[in-house]
Design a protein around this nucleic acid. Structure first.
Length: 288
DNA sequence: GGCCAGGCCTTTG
DNA sequence: CAAAGGCATGGC
C-alpha cells in the first residue's frame, strides 16, 4: 500500500495543481490514472487534487510545500499584479497557479533546449535525455528516469545529444554541463545575486540569452521580478500595452528590454507571476 | 507539406 | 549599434 499524504488547500492558501503543472513552466509531469506523476530530484511523486485536498504519494509534506512554494502568500501576490481587466481575467481563470521551485541545473538545461522549440518538442528532448542518460527509478506508477546530473552530460559527445533530438542545442548543453562541473558553486552564487547580476552570470553560458536567463531566474531562483518575453508574451504586450514597436518578425535586444522593463514597472515586484498567468491564459485560449 | 516554436549566435550593413 | 540569416527538429 502506498502511503498517501494529505495537504489541505484553502481560500487563504489557494492552489491549482493542474494549472501549476500544465502551464508550461515544467516539462516532465504527466497525467496518469487521474493523478499527476513526475520526478523531483531522485523521487517519483504522484499528486492528485480533490477539491481542497492535495493527495501526495512519494514525498513528505515539507518537500511538497517547498516545491510548490505553498508558504508564499499567493492572494497578496495576485492582488499586487491585478492592475487591469486583461490580467484580471487571467487571474480569475487560473487562480491557484503557482510558480514551482525548480532545480537550477535541470532548469538551465531545459530552457537552453526550449529556444526556438514548441512545448511538446521540449518535453520530447528532455525525456530523451532522461531515458538515455538518467538513473531509472522504479515506482508504483512505472519506471521513470532522474534528470541526468552534470557529470553525466559532461561526459557525452555532441552526437550523443543530437540523438536525443537536441539539434544545434547539443553543443550548448554540453558546454553548460562542463562549465557547471568546473564550477559547482554556480547556483549558490546566483541565488545570492540580484536579478540583474544573476542575469549577467547566466548569460555567460553559451546558448543563454535574455529570455532563457529570465526563465531560469524566475523558475529556479525565485527572482519574481523577472519577466521572460517569448513570442507569445511579445504579442500580448504589443497588442494590449505597448502598441507597435519595431518589425513583426524577430525581436531585438532593445525591444526585449523595452517590453520587460515596462512589465516590471507596470506589474511590480511580482511581474513574473503576471507573466505566468498571461502565458497560461494564452495557452488555454490556444486550445480552441 | 509548409509553418512555427518559452531564441541565440554570427555576420553584415 | 542595428539588422538580417542560419540553425535542427518535431508538432500541427
Amino acid at each position: 500500500m502506498i502511503p498517501v499524504l494529505q495537504i489541505t488547500i484553502s481560500d487563504t492558501r489557494p492552489f491549482d495543481l493542474a494549472c501549476t503543472l500544465d502551464c508550461g513552466q515544467l516539462f516532465r509531469w504527466r497525467r496518469q490514472e487521474g493523478a499527476w506523476v513526475g520526478v523531483v530530484g531522485d523521487a517519483v511523486i504522484a499528486v492528485r487534487q480533490e477539491g481542497s485536498t492535495l493527495c501526495v504519494a512519494g514525498a513528505e509534506e515539507r518537500c511538497i510545500e517547498h516545491y510548490f512554494q505553498l508558504d508564499l502568500d499567493l492572494p497578496a501576490i495576485l492582488a499586487s499584479i491585478d492592475r487591469d481587466p486583461l490580467i484580471h481575467a487571467a487571474i480569475v481563470r487560473h487562480r491557484g497557479l503557482r510558480l514551482v521551485r525548480q532545480d537550477p541545473w535541470e532548469c538551465l538545461i531545459s530552457y537552453i533546449c526550449a529556444q526556438n522549440a514548441s512545448i511538446p518538442f521540449i518535453r520530447c528532448m528532455i525525456e530523451n535525455m532522461a531515458r538515455c542518460y538518467g538513473v531509472p527509478l522504479s515506482s508504483p506508477w512505472g519506471t521513470y528516469y532522474a534528470f541526468p546530473p552534470p557529470e553525466v552530460l559532461a561526459s557525452l559527445e555532441v552526437d550523443d545529444l543530437r540523438r536525443c533530438s537536441l539539434g544545434y542545442r547539443s553543443g550548448y548543453v554540453l558546454d553548460a554541463a562542463r562549465r557547471v562541473c568546473e564550477d559547482p558553486g554556480w547556483a549558490g552564487r546566483i541565488d545570492a545575486l540580484s536579478f540583474e547580476q544573476g542575469r549577467r552570470e547566466l548569460m555567460a553560458f553559451r546558448g543563454v540569452g535574455r529570455k532563457v536567463a529570465d526563465c531560469i531566474l524566475l523558475f529556479a531562483f525565485q527572482k519574481f521580478d523577472s519577466f521572460p518575453v517569448d513570442v507569445w508574451m511579445r504579442r500580448v504586450i504589443r497588442e494590449h500595452y505597448l502598441p507597435c514597436e519595431g518589425p513583426d518578425r524577430g525581436m531585438s535586444c532593445r525591444e526585449y528590454d523595452a517590453i520587460a522593463g515596462f512589465a516590471r514597472e507596470y506589474f511590480g515586484e511580482y511581474a513574473g507571476y503576471a507573466q505566468e498567468y498571461l502565458f497560461a491564459d494564452i495557452r488555454a485560449g490556444q486550445k480552441r
